[in-house]
Design a protein around this nucleic acid. Structure first.
Lengths: 79, 79
DNA sequence: TATGATTTGTGCGTATGTATT
DNA sequence: TAATACATACGCACAAATCAT
């Protein structure tokens, strides 16, 4: 079970959890991250919240999404 | 035509109707229940609502779904 | 072999209403 | 007041699996 913090929105907390999994190697590059539906199921949030999570990860360049396929871990940005 | 009740969601009402059909023997074990598209057509709901109906039936163990095939009546759970 | 139809899975967009913070 | 969150419901596009032709 997730222990939600009260001082930050759920969508941000879920996004951070997924980012930690990516950083830890749990999700490899080009491997799928949880889908909208899976986020709803695993974290017990609403669909709108799940969408916001994936939207945030895309905006940060952490993942990329393909319609009809899902969202996947992006290759690390070159520095 | 369906007479929708205002006090409960459409997806629940449709799910209950299908469960009644299963209970009555109208849909046999391993026989297909209405597909998403058929639910859309018969009950006049959106696909998302139809998906929610089948999702609920799966969660209750009433049916099982196979990608590319459809949803089918599950064998009764042993007690 | 391949083509199309059917079906489920997924992503994405939008809207309304309610409740909480 | 505003942001967050949940629930419900509508819709479209594309992908993958399956089956029949």
């Amino acid at each position: 079970m997730i222990e939600w913090r009260l001082n930050q929105p759920k969508w941000l907390q879920v996004a951070n959890i997924i980012k930690e999994r990516i950083a830890s190697g749990q999700y490899q590059v080009d491997a799928p991250v949880p889908s909208e539906h899976q986020i709803v199921q695993e974290f017990g949030v609403a669909r709108g919240t799940a969408r916001k999570v994936l939207e945030r990860l895309r905006e940060e360049g952490v993942t990329y999404s393909v319609r009809g396929l899902g969202s996947f871990v992006a290759a690390p940005a070159a520095e």
